[in-house]
Structures are given as structure tokens and as C-alpha cells.
């Protein structure tokens, strides 16, 4: 009985802590899952890389998530225009890429953005013959611009 009572707040805390996760861009997870299924290869572990990226990410950037697929066979995934359709279907029909770059050698880059309050949620997909990267982050335009103008000064003020 005590065990059950003690478990309740823990469960509640886990549920509350899970809220931001639920609010995250699900398109990122969907893309990573489906690319993993196509390539039949898991993305590189980005634990330490993710930690570094969070520590040294530009001012105004938060919620950085990254999945890197290395040494993949791009022929396992849809090719050419089919890859465009695959990405669009996975991200969702309500979002249009702000920027789409397609090269004849198969390289593809997509940038999706949507507002999240005062911040902008960015989703970047880049794929080429043997690699693919999916990146998701939130950017505060004002803080990011300040960082762009004076990255060294901001780093000094933050004590880096």
C-alpha cells in the first residue's frame, strides 16, 4: 500500500515531465523512425555529441535534437522525387518546406519552420548517397540575431 502511494507522485512527476516531450515536434521522431526502417540501420548515437551541441549551441537555440545516419545505402530509401514525397508525407501535409534543394547526384535538403510562441521551430532534413541527417531545434530570432552579430561578446558575458 505504501509502495503504491509512494509511486503515485513519482508517476505524476514522470507524466508532468513527459509533457514537453509530447509537445516536441513529432515530425522529427517520425522521420527518424521511417528513415531507420528504410535504411535498416539505426542513427549514430548522439549522446555525447548531443551534449556537446547543447553546451556549445548558439545563443537563442534550444531543444536541439539530431539524428545522423552514416554509411547508409540511399537506394534503400525512396529516391529522387519519391524522396520529396516521402519527406512531405512524413512531416505532414500542413507544412510546406521553406527551402528545398535537390541535386542531380541525389542530395536533398529540406528546411521546415513553424512558429512556437515567440520562437521558431526548425526541422532540417539533409540526405545524400551515404549519409542522412535530421535536425530539430527551436530558435529565438532576437537572441539568435544578437549572437550572430557578436558571438564572442555573448560567449564572454556567459562565461564560456
Amino acid at each position: 500500500m505504501i509502495g503504491r502511494l509512494g509511486l503515485a507522485p513519482v508517476l505524476a512527476a514522470v507524466l508532468v515531465a513527459g509533457v514537453p516531450v509530447q509537445a516536441r515536434d513529432r515530425a522529427f521522431s517520425r522521420l527518424v523512425d521511417r528513415l531507420e526502417a528504410h535504411y535498416q540501420k539505426a542513427p549514430m548515437g548522439t549522446g555525447f555529441l548531443g551534449f556537446l551541441a547543447r553546451c556549445f549551441s548558439p545563443e537563442g537555440v534550444s531543444g536541439l535534437r539530431m539524428a545522423i545516419f552514416e554509411d547508409v545505402d540511399s537506394r534503400r530509401a525512396p529516391l529522387g522525387g519519391d524522396f520529396d514525397a516521402f519527406v512531405q508525407r512524413t512531416v505532414g501535409p500542413d507544412r510546406t518546406p521553406l527551402v528545398r534543394v535537390a541535386r542531380k547526384d541525389g542530395e536533398r535538403v529540406y528546411l521546415y519552420a513553424r512558429p512556437q510562441g515567440e520562437r521558431m521551430e526548425l526541422l532540417v532534413v539533409a540526405a545524400e548517397a551515404t549519409e542522412a541527417v535530421v535536425l530539430s531545434m527551436k530558435v529565438d530570432p532576437e537572441r539568435f540575431q544578437a549572437w550572430m552579430e557578436d558571438p564572442e561578446g555573448l560567449a564572454r558575458r556567459r562565461g564560456h
Binding site: 518546406p97 527551402v99 534543394v101 535537390a102
Partner: peptide
């Protein structure tokens, strides 16, 4: 050999 498309409208433009 290369295609670049930029689509900025609505909220994207405001952002």
C-alpha cells in the same frame, strides 16, 4: 543538376 525552391508566405514570412 540543381533545384532550389524557396516558399515564404503567411507565418513563415512573419517569422
Amino acid at each position: 543538376s540543381e533545384v532550389v525552391e524557396v516558399t515564404l508566405d503567411g507565418q513563415a514570412l512573419a517569422m
